[in-house]
């Protein structure tokens, strides 16, 4: 019985420490995220172009063709599909 009550008091301490820590970490996520956004907005306001997988794998494929194929794959696969490479098939 004594063991349970001492465990219970330790469990209550864990509740307090655990919840405070989780809130603290997520508060820091919010704060650091906001600071990061402000810094990036200030020093790098122009959107960087992320190299898509398709744009590099498509050797010699025109960007507008890559964009069209990407859009089709996105639509048909409901965002689940991914383009690994684009090859022209000769008939």
């Amino acid at each position: 019985m004594d063991n349970i009550s001492s465990n219970l008091s330790e469990a209550l301490i864990l509740l307090a420490i655990g919840m405070i820590t989780v809130f603290l970490i997520l508060a820091l996520v919010v704060v650091s995220g906001n600071i990061l956004i402000k810094i990036v907005n200030k020093y790098a306001p122009e959107p960087s172009k992320k190299l898509t997988r398709a744009s590099r794998s498509a050797t010699g494929t025109a960007p507008e063709v890559v964009a069209a194929i990407t859009a089709v794959v996105e639509t048909v696969t409901a965002g689940q599909g991914r383009i690994e490479s684009i090859k022209k098939v000769e008939h």
């Binding site: 956004i37 990036v40 790098a44 959107p47 960087s48």
Partner: peptide, 8 residues
């Protein structure tokens, strides 16, 4: 705050 460069 608006995000200007989400990728970065």
């Amino acid at each position: 705050v608006k995000i200007k460069d989400m990728n970065r």
